[in-house]
Design a protein around this nucleic acid. Structure first.
Length: 287
DNA sequence: AACTACTCCTGGAGGC
DNA sequence: TGCCTCCAGGAGTAGT
């Protein structure tokens, strides 16, 4: 569930707390989390300063002062919580286990201790998160530009760019294409549903059925949902169910509840094996 | 090119 | 209460 807005929010929140801090201890409780070290070990992070935290697609890249980078992908249900000495918690990623619950949890995979007394916990109830420690110059081997498309927050992402990328797949359907990280990097199941609802487009629409106005609305809807999530807070969903009270989600996880635009009940379908939520009135399937 | 199925994994929900 | 099955889903791979 951590998609671009969750990872970007975490990047921003962690950056203000850990940049300039030194790592004083590393505990890897679930060794399978670590997928590649290029011959280094996690102990090579000890005594080293955090210089920068970057994001590409759904990857977090923690650049260290010794020329290494810790690359983190939270997978389906990875969560990071930083406990600061003040008692403040900085938390992001999957909301289960609940933020604020005592840590470490039985599924906590990694613990980093920092020189100001902060402790960072990576907890992952589905064990699909992945970690790599590699020279910063070789991060591209883990986060390959050849397999990652345009960043929706970057200036290169324009209506023309979206149209050009979609038009390479005239027979492709919208939802699988928007989930394809090599086309557009960072959207996942939830925000794709939100964007398609915003644009009034059915997830099974083919690219060739879209006119320029449709693509323009889709572009604006993607920008809008990312802006909502980054400004007012990420979508709140646990085990596929929307948690009421936030601005997002507006459609995902709301099966049976009224569409916020027209009142018709939201329907759930499966598209490409993924649970998909639509308003059948606002998002008609036309070819 | 487009699609499906399968793998990794665990916890929560719902059926009976 | 308690088993059992299904589902959640990012990403990679294999097969059609």
């Amino acid at each position: 569930m951590p998609e671009l807005p969750e990872v970007e929010t975490l990047r921003r929140d962690l950056s203000r707390a850990v940049i300039g801090r030194r790592i004083i201890a590393v505990e890897l409780l679930r060794p399978r989390l670590l997928r590649g070290t290029d011959g280094y070990t996690l102990d090579d992070m000890i005594g080293v300063e955090v210089q920068e935290i970057r994001r590409r697609a759904k990857y977090l890249i923690v650049e260290l002062s010794n020329g290494l980078s810790l690359v983190i992908h939270l997978g389906l249900a990875g969560q990071i919580v930083l406990e600061r000495p003040s008692g403040e918690h900085i938390a992001g990623g999957h909301p289960v286990p609940s933020f604020g619950q005592p840590l470490p949890h039985s599924l906590t995979s990694l613990i980093l201790r920092l020189d100001d007394g902060s402790i960072l916990y990576l907890t992952d109830i589905r064990q699909f998160a992945r970690l790599w420690l590699v020279p910063t110059g070789e991060v591209a081997a883990i986060v390959p530009e050849t397999r990652l498309g345009v960043e929706p927050l970057a200036p290169e992402f324009t209506p023309a760019e979206l149209a050009s990328r979609l038009r390479r797949h005239p027979h492709g359907r919208l939802k699988p294409l928007l989930l394809d990280q090599s086309l557009l990097a960072g959207l996942g199941n939830i925000y794709v549903d939100e964007a398609l609802w915003g644009a009034g487009l059915h997830p099974l629409r083919t690219v060739e059925s879209l006119d320029d106005a449709d693509v323009g609305r889709l572009y604006e809807a993607i920008k809008e949902v990312l802006d909502l999530a980054l400004t007012y807070g990420v979508a709140r969903i646990i085990n596929g169910r929307a948690i009421p009270g936030a601005r997002l989600p507006r459609v995902h996880g709301r099966a049976g509840q009224p569409c916020l635009r027209c009142g018709h009940p939201i329907e759930k379908l499966r598209v490409g094996g993924r649970g998909t939520y639509i308003c059948p009135v606002c998002q008609p399937l036309v070819e």
